[in-house]
Simulated assay, not measured.
Amino acid sequence: MTTVLVAGATGSLGRQVVEKLLDRGADVRALVRPASVDELAAHPNLTPCVGDLADGADALARHLDGVEVVVSAVQGGPEVIIDGQRALLRAAEGAGVHRMVPSDFSINLHGYGYGVNVLSDLRRVFADEFATSSVARTSVAIGAFPEYFLGAVHEVLDPAASTFSLWGEGTRPIDVTTIPDTAAHTAAIALDPKTAGREVHVVGQRLSMLELRDEVEAASGRRWELVRKGTLRDLREEVARRRFTASTMFQCVALQAQVAMFDGTGSLRDVRNADYPDVVPTSVAAYLADRGAAHFTPPDTTWGRDEWPTAL
């Protein structure tokens, strides 16, 4: 039985990674803050580990004895993605952990350079820590979560106005993978020793923005007016404008991701779905017919542009 420690185990992705690992027979340790312990479901192979990445490597070390793989599903700024994960990596090195899956779970981080997407930059900086580490890095790329991409943060769907907005022509395929499918793939990849030192790309579905609009109209049963916001050059200029005028990075990171999605530099490469045939991805149509139907009505609460967006 493989022992896996999951950081961020009560987040929208982390809790499902825990469930999928348990389904596959792993022994799971869930690293959670004291206030989140009660959010963990009881399971004979699940052990709560109370702690925080901010506690530092020495404090985290006690949770890692006997752990073979670490999966990080945390999110945040540099204090989490770089500093916090670095502390977890140092603790893992001291405990003899074999591999770590960092909290990447995004588009192809290495298809474009620094300065395009601030969150990608943070992940790349942390990736450099593995160059001299005894712990092998296994990075999972999935494209975009539809839970976020069709939410307020990406400014694509406006359910109150029934509009669907895009930049560019909208004909280039983009990669989307639901959070549950990402969790299922992550569990399989974490337990696959062949992924040591590799970038593993998996995807739920590839479709263009225009095809995505068709799926939204079919699932909602109503017309969504297509709003063309401008060219990809216009998108880059809008990102630059927001970087100088926004009070927080949250007001431009989604559009930064769209730049790489829509110009193809963030597209997934060498997709490895066939390596994990027991994970059957959810189509966009199936997602929209189920949980994703919530995108079609205005939310009860407004997303604050100074905070991390919360998935459905």
Rank of each mutant, 00 (worst) to 15 (best):
S247R: 14
M100Y: 04
A141D: 06
F130M: 03
G266R: 02
R241Y: 14
L88C: 08
G292D: 09
V216P: 00
T177W: 01
V203L: 11
S267D: 15
G168R: 00
F250V: 00
A127T: 12
A254F: 04
R236V: 12
L210S: 03
G204Y: 01
V101K: 01
A152D: 14
A91T: 00
R15C: 11
P34H: 04
T248I: 00
R272F: 00
G115Y: 05
V6T: 05
D300H: 11
E147G: 05
E19D: 14
I179V: 12
E155F: 03
Q205S: 12
Y112F: 15
S267M: 10
D83C: 01
A246P: 10
A161W: 05
C252F: 14
S208Q: 02
L13A: 02
I179E: 11
P299N: 05
V32P: 07
A41D: 11
A61M: 09
A127H: 10
V74L: 15
N108W: 13
G111S: 09
V71E: 03
N45Y: 01
D23E: 15
S103N: 05
T186W: 01
I142N: 12
G94Q: 10
H43G: 07
T186S: 11
T231S: 15
H185T: 04
A41E: 13
F130H: 03
V4F: 02
A218F: 10
V125Y: 07
M261H: 11
H98Y: 07
T3G: 02
D58Y: 03
R213K: 13
R242N: 05
